[in-house]
């Protein structure tokens, strides 16, 4: 996909994500909207050997969304790629749904790892990447962690392990939207100098605007050229990006949004999947 096509896909994914949450009336809006472009980039060429007809294809690149509460963003992208019917987006968190708030590998086709208890995903991603090394099949593992999530100590255990074992097939993205539940990350427990921290742990570190496809492409392409080290792409993002009332707001983490608000934002253009 070229940049314009990626932008169009992301706009559609953001819209689907917002209607998905809006149809329920509440959800993790902020951290879902901040990774729409990142997911769009991953699922349109960056991740290899994906097959919606065979979501568990052996040689696929895998993704662990460690900030599992961003499920609705991933669901929008997976549905658009054909992993399951678009209509499922209208079932978020309703009893018996296949789309729970937090990513669940046993519920949703295309989800590689169950997440939601923050801090655990990077270790699992290390296991997936290490397994790929044992299999010698060239698979990569991607992992998305939150900035607030970085406060969980287990990340740093995993960071040490990945560097010690030279897991250069592990590409981690920090969704650095600068906000967490109780305030700004800086106010709660600041994580700076975050680039220096990952570098000190032996990682190959990049910085990119997480909403800019050219910047993402540059960072991923550079990362692929480096052997022997795990890669960290710190993406500067905006929490709640694209939903003006919550954009950049602390309260966007888990927020009420009405379907009327979302309809108004999209000037009454309702997706076909919404009953």
């Amino acid at each position: 996909m070229n940049e314009n096509e990626l932008k169009a896909f992301a706009a559609e994914a953001r819209k689907n994500c917002l209607f998905c949450i809006g149809s329920l009336g509440v959800g993790h809006v902020g951290g879902a909207l901040s990774i729409i472009e990142i997911l769009t980039y991953l699922y349109n060429g960056e991740m290899r050997n994906l097959d919606p007809k065979n979501p568990r294809r052996e040689d696929r690149d895998m993704l662990v969304v460690s900030k599992g509460h961003s499920g609705p963003a991933l669901y929008a992208v997976l549905a658009m790629q054909g992993f399951f019917p678009m209509e499922w987006l209208d079932t978020l968190n309703r009893g018996g749904t296949r789309l729970p708030s937090h990513c669940d590998r046993n519920q949703t086709p295309g989800i590689d790892m169950s997440t939601g208890s923050l801090g655990q995903g990077l270790s699992a991603a290390c296991g997936i990447a290490y397994g790929a090394k044992l299999k010698e099949n060239g698979q990569r593992c991607y992992c998305i962690i939150g900035d607030g999530e970085t406060q969980e100590g287990q990340n740093w255990e995993a960071a040490m392990f990945a560097a010690a074992k030279g897991l250069d097939n592990l590409i981690t993205i920090t969704d650095y939207n600068k906000l967490q539940i109780d305030g700004t990350v800086e106010q709660v427990v600041g994580i700076e100098d975050i680039e220096a921290k990952w570098k000190a742990f032996g990682w190959d570190v990049y910085r990119a605007d997480g909403h800019d496809f050219k910047a993402l492409e540059k960072a991923f392409d550079a990362a692929h050229k480096v052997d022997g080290k795990p890669k960290m792409i710190i993406c500067d993002t905006i929490k709640g990006k694209g939903f003006p009332r919550l954009e950049g707001q602390v309260g966007s983490h888990n927020a009420n949004i009405t379907l009327d608000e979302v309809k108004e934002l999209y000037k009454g253009e309702v997706p076909a999947w919404l009953k």
Partner: peptide, 9 residues
């Protein structure tokens, strides 16, 4: 966590 990832594989 690593064991879990290996099991995914």
């Amino acid at each position: 966590g690593i064991a879990s990832g290996l099991s995914v594989q």
